[in-house]
Nucleic acid binder design. Structure first.
Lengths: 174, 174
DNA sequence: CGATTATGTTATCATCGTCAACATAAAAGT
DNA sequence: ACTTTTATGTTGACGATGATAACATAATCG
């Protein structure tokens, strides 16, 4: 797999398409991801994408899965570094992640997840994230309450219903 | 305004388009709302919609505004009827509304709200909803915490991350 | 080296949001 | 009452999108 220069074959189109879609996601929000535009960025014809993804939704699901990896890493790091309660640290990191990468975040926990019959890997990733939270929270109810709170606050801030004020967030989380 | 039979003019196209879009929203989720399909349902040509809405986003904003009216009514009724704390009753009604009309709910509190420079009426409606909650909660922080919690729980349930179990919800809310 | 498989390309379709040009009904002015 | 203006529809087009079929080329394997 030399993949040097510009051959007929791309080398790793799948990754290139994901990269392009990722950039679109970060830049223009959720609806800005277009299969054709991603293919254009990867320097490839529109139909080429269908050799690697069944349809657009599959591309988005793969993107969300990628997001969960970054998410898990960010959470682990935050919990390890923070001084106080790991539960609170995790909540803080959750909101920080959502505010830093709104598109990724919305995609990961968005309607795509609901139709997880089609994307079982996604629900598995989400469940794993919850399991980690539950370990810190000590109890299922507390974990669910915490998740609900940070998830809701993150989205309300993203949607402009609540101001993005880190002092305020800290008060609400702690 | 006889509007009987089929005349060249429709009578109240604006309302008819909103009704059609509303049906699409309830049925097929958020992305299922199409200007052309709504026009088709209203028995009118696609371009006719542009006499009443600047673009698709304006149609959606009007739909969201309509949603806020129904939302306010539902909340008021729930608070009046409930026996216990109005704060808890409001939270319960919030989640119930979201689960009953996912499309409406997502539209109302979704990314459309964030770009409220374009739709000031929407942000006003959302602020009014929060003011009512704050009155029941007794204090801004408590209100924000409550809002965040029910908002997050509602969305997590809608997206299949948390099971839709009303006993569980009751435990988490109370 | 030759056959099979993996991966791209071109061409085409239906649908969508949107606009310009035109048509008709209703309202307003005289 | 007749005419002019305005409100509201229609037709037809454009560019973009997701998707598929038919074809072309490269990589892999016997």
């Amino acid at each position: 797999m030399p993949s040097s220069g510009k051959s007929y074959h791309h080398g790793d189109l799948r990754a290139a398409l994901l990269d392009a879609a990722d950039a679109l996601l970060d830049q223009g929000g959720d609806g800005a991801v277009s299969l054709r535009e991603a293919a254009r960025m990867a320097g490839v014809s529109p139909a080429a994408a269908y050799r690697h993804f069944a349809d657009k939704e599959a591309l988005l699901a793969a993107l969300a899965l990628r997001g969960f990896e970054a998410f898990g890493a960010a959470m682990g790091q935050a919990v390890a570094q923070a001084g106080g309660s790991p539960y609170v640290a995790r909540g803080r990191a959750y909101i920080r992640f959502a505010l830093a990468r709104p598109g990724r975040f919305r995609l990961m926990f968005g309607p795509l997840l609901a139709r997880s019959g089609a994307h079982p890997a996604l629900q598995a990733a989400s469940r794993q994230a919850f399991a980690a939270l539950q370990a810190d929270a000590g109890g299922r109810e507390a974990a669910l309450r915490g998740w609900g709170l940070v998830h809701g606050l993150a989205l309300l801030i993203l949607d402009g219903a609540i101001p993005d004020d880190s002092d305020l967030i800290e008060k609400l989380i702690r």
